[in-house]
Design a binder for these strands. Structure first.
Length: 499
RNA sequence: UCCUCGGUAGCUCAGCCGGUUAGAGCAUUUGACUGUUAAUCAAAGGGUCGUUGGUUCGAGUCCAACCCGGGGAGCCA
């Protein structure tokens, strides 16, 4: 009977057929240990010369990495492996024998792997990431649907360059310029006035020439918009959503998180402890505080001490290497490689931290936070921080002013811990037509493009709020990844359009 | 656009103050091994040192320009 690897526990002791690809081969005389992957999981498949017919053994002798096969055999427990069952093969058929598969089981550089992204997706690490991404997407739908939200989609082609054209991708739309959407939020507001509570789920595009671990040119955003929600209700919703999603991943993706070496105690804290909420003014105070400097200084000292220790170890290993036996030599080489990458990271930190300290100390009230400032603020806590009431100058035209203090806009940014930065941005929207008109003028935006939007304030204007969640940044945070480009099947960023 | 680090075998990297024939591991090929876990062991093949120009008796190594990539800044409703 045909089955998938993930279902093997249900078939212990019986004979099943699997179809998949050979991920790895280890062999000894008369016996071969294949690691088979079929998309659902990875498991060991044992081909023993004395247990299979000659035809099958011949095939087994020719198998290479990523060759596609069909195996039939008995399901038996395998306690030495991550996956607790293996197949004792009876017959083996082949779809294709592969020659010269380019990705080996050794470390590779990012650029090399990104050029082979269509194949890179087959490795266990990428498999785990994509499954976490999938679970997050599903959890988002579950959360909103359970709360009575309606999913509605905003258009991707837009005519109005509402944020200035510099970060927009321009296309030719039947002879007139059209831009790829940077945000569906204005449309979200219109839809919320029709349906009460809605969320959009779609791709957004930003033409920023940013080459950082947090940026993509094409990424997926979830943008809920709710009629009759104020800023506080908005923040409550954001917090419960993030807790819901994280809980779902913790419950259903233990295998994946383990494969990714994610420290789940940190995610557990996110689920169990209340988020920190502070105003922009308080966040600035914290940023400029002596404690921020102390924390950074400590990080810097740690980086330096670790560097020293690693250099020392490197020296010792180098001396040992000459006289070492072959096996030990390989071990040393591996460790040297590890040390090498760690040293590079540390070197980076040692260069960056002093700049962060300077930037934090010299920060001026009224400015927007830079990437490093966000990291410094989050460095103080282990749970996400919701920073609200920003200077209205740095926020978008549709953001409502704080009725108690007109310096502030009723916006909120959620900063993830561990340096992952802003994962959610949102706020309460301006409801007054006249204020909006004035704001549109101040931002030098073309009034004609916003006539339809102003209608929302002319016909039944109500308090409302919403936010935008960057899917890839959330995946990076939950999965504990270094770079957002690994969180999406085919990343699009500066200098990257293929594959 | 600016700052910074890098480009050496298919891949990841080493190569010191410029000096003989440019090295290692993995991958590939061949052989050994009947329970392997990045399996191990033995051997072989594999190079226009990013490009162009310069300095020098001599350049992977020094200098200049350019190309490509990583990280950071700016930018990121």
């Amino acid at each position: 009977m045909n089955t998938n690897i993930i279902d093997l526990p249900k078939h212990e002791g019986s004979t099943v057929t699997l179809q998949g690809w050979v991920y790895n081969i280890r062999e000894s005389k008369g016996i071969k240990f294949l690691v088979l992957r079929d998309g659902s999981e990875f498991c060991q498949v044992v081909v023993s010369q004395q247990d299979v017919d000659e035809e099958s053994w011949n095939i087994a002798e020719q198998l290479t990495q990523e060759s596609s096969v069909k195996v039939t055999g008995k399901v038996v427990p395998n306690h030495r492996d991550r996956f607790p069952f293996e197949i004792q093969v009876q017959t083996l058929e082949v779809y294709q024998i592969v020659k010269d598969y380019p990705i080996t089981h050794k470390e590779h550089g990012v650029d090399f792997l990104m050029n082979l992204r269509h194949l890179w997706l087959r490795t266990p690490r990428q498999w785990a990431i994509m499954r976490v991404r999938n679970r997050i997407i599903f959890a988002i739908h579950q959360f909103f649907q359970e709360q009575g939200f309606v999913q509605m989609d905003a258009p991707i082609f837009t005519g109005n360059a509402c944020e200035g054209t510099s970060t927009l991708f321009e296309t030719d739309y039947y002879g007139v310029p059209a831009y790829l959407s940077q945000s569906g939020q204005l449309y979200g507001e219109a839809m919320a006035m029709a349906m009460g509570k809605i969320y959009t789920f779609g791709p957004t595009f930003r033409a920023e020439k940013s080459q950082t671990r947090r940026h993509l040119s094409e990424f997926w955003m979830i943008e809920p918009e709710m009629a009759f929600y104020d800023l506080e209700m908005n923040m409550d919703l954001i917090e419960s959503m993030l807790k819901y999603i994280t809980q779902a991943v913790l419950k259903d993706c233990q295998t994946e998180l383990k494969l990714l070496n994610r420290d789940t105690t940190k995610l557990q804290k996110l689920v169990e402890q209340p988020f920190i909420r502070m105003t922009y003014e308080e966040a600035v105070k914290l940023l400029k505080s002596d404690k921020s400097q102390e924390l950074l200084q400590k990080d810097l000292d740690n980086a330096k001490t670790t560097t020293e220790a690693l250099l020392q170890e490197q020296k010792t290993l180098q001396q040992e290497h000459g006289g070492a036996k072959k096996g030990r030599k390989a071990e040393i080489d591996r460790r040297m490689q590890e040390i090498h990458t760690q040293l590079k990271d540390l070197e980076e930190s040692i260069r960056n931290i002093p700049q962060w300290m300077k930037s934090a100390k010299e920060f001026e009230l009224g400015n927007d936070f830079g990437g490093s400032d966000e990291t410094v603020i989050t460095r103080h806590f282990e749970v996400p921080i919701m920073v609200h009431r920003y200077p209205h100058q740095v926020k978008a035209f549709y953001m409502k002013r704080d009725p108690k203090d007109s310096r502030w806009a009723m916006g909120v940014d959620v900063l993830a811990p561990e340096g992952y930065g802003e994962i959610v941005g949102g706020g309460e929207r301006e409801t007054d037509e006249q204020v909006l008109i004035q704001k549109i003028h101040e931002h030098n935006l073309p009034m004609s493009a916003f006539e339809w939007y102003l209608d929302l304030r002319r016909f039944g204007s109500v308090p409302h709020s919403g936010f935008g969640l960057g899917l890839e940044r959330l995946v990076a945070y939950i999965a504990g990844l270094h770079h957002v480009r690994e969180t999406i099947p085919f990343a699009r960023h500066y200098n990257r359009l293929t594959p």
